[in-house]
Amino acid sequence: MFKQRRGRSKQGDGAAVLVAEAPAYAVTLDSVTKTYRTGATEVRALDGVSLGLRRGSFTAVMGPSGSGKSTFLHCAAGLDQPTSGTVWLGDTELTRLDEKQLTVQRRTRIGFVFQAYNLIPSLSVRDNITLPLRFSGVPVDEAWLAQIVQEVGLGDRLTHRPSELSGGQQQRVAIARALITRPEAVFADEPTGALDSRTGKQVLQLMRSLVDSLGQTILMVTHDPVAASWADRVVFLADGRLAGELADPTAETVAAHLTHLGEW
């Protein structure tokens, strides 16, 4: 459904030159189906889902419990392999990779933010942020670290431990950790679920600014229409299938759409 553009020809001094061009989509799902079998029972969590995430976009995924939101995120992020269909990260087809190769992709090209901050209590904020680089044996780019820390507002907290931070600050550490490898996409699963409304708004403002200022691609699974309204578009799932989408959403239009998913 979504074609990956790998390059284009350009005339220069009378000769055709191949110019590298990044795919228009950071993440692409094409006819993705995921089924689970328990004994004689088969559950189709995703049913032929095709969707592209344009680079530098903020997409929210919503739907009732059991609609396939988590399965969608897991397949899109290479955490789980679909039963059929293809998933692309840029110009790399994740569905062709084995688990070892997928681990490398997740570690170097994908960022994750979850409801639980998943910080290591014994490490400082700096060490928590740079942990993915340590796992990969990659030296810290101090200039990039400084920029990220400034973006997330943690410049005076680098030597603190997670227990010395508020919930919102801990989530900011998790977001900075997700960004440290310069990922092609960040996947956020209910990132404000454990936060109060004021702190959640601050985290959403931060995510919005990362898209606008850094061109980061973010996909967020959420149940909250207010959280979804910070995205460029909202994609709805019902019974494992796409059930519409909204561009330039508001909390009111998202809530109204959700009320009609049962009719769909």
Rank of each mutant, 00 (worst) to 15 (best):
M1N: 11
M1L: 13
F2M: 12
F2K: 13
R5Q: 13
R8Q: 13
R8E: 15
Q11C: 00
G12C: 12
G12I: 14
L18A: 03
E21A: 12
A22I: 07
L29E: 03
T33Q: 10
T33V: 15
R37A: 15
G39N: 10
T41R: 11
T41V: 15
E42S: 11
E42W: 04
R44C: 10
R44D: 06
S50P: 10
G52Q: 12
R55W: 12
T59F: 09
T59D: 00
S65Q: 10
S67E: 09
T71V: 05
F72K: 02
A76R: 06
G78T: 04
V87E: 00
W88P: 00
L89S: 09
L89I: 11
T92D: 14
E93F: 01
E93G: 03
L94P: 00
L102D: 04
R109Y: 09
I110E: 03
A116Q: 13
N118R: 02
P121S: 11
S124Y: 07
S124F: 08
N128L: 01
P139N: 05
V140Q: 04
D141K: 05
W144Y: 14
L145M: 10
Q147M: 03
I148T: 05
V152Y: 06
G153C: 03
G153P: 00
D156C: 04
L158T: 02
R161V: 05
E164N: 09
G168Q: 05
R172D: 00
V173I: 08
A178R: 01
L179A: 02
T181P: 00
R182L: 06
P183Y: 09
E184N: 12
F187C: 11
F187K: 10
D189C: 10
E190A: 06
T192V: 10
T192C: 10
G193K: 01
L195T: 05
Q205A: 08
L206M: 08
M207W: 04
R208L: 08
L210N: 01
V211F: 11
V211D: 01
D212T: 12
D212G: 05
L214K: 07
Q216R: 04
I218R: 00
P225S: 09
V226P: 02
R233H: 11
V234G: 01
D239E: 15
D239M: 11
R241G: 06
E245D: 13
L246C: 05
L246H: 06
A247R: 14
A247G: 11
P249R: 05
T250Q: 07
T253F: 07
A255I: 06
A255V: 02
H257T: 14
H260N: 14
L261E: 10
G262P: 07
W264A: 13
W264H: 15
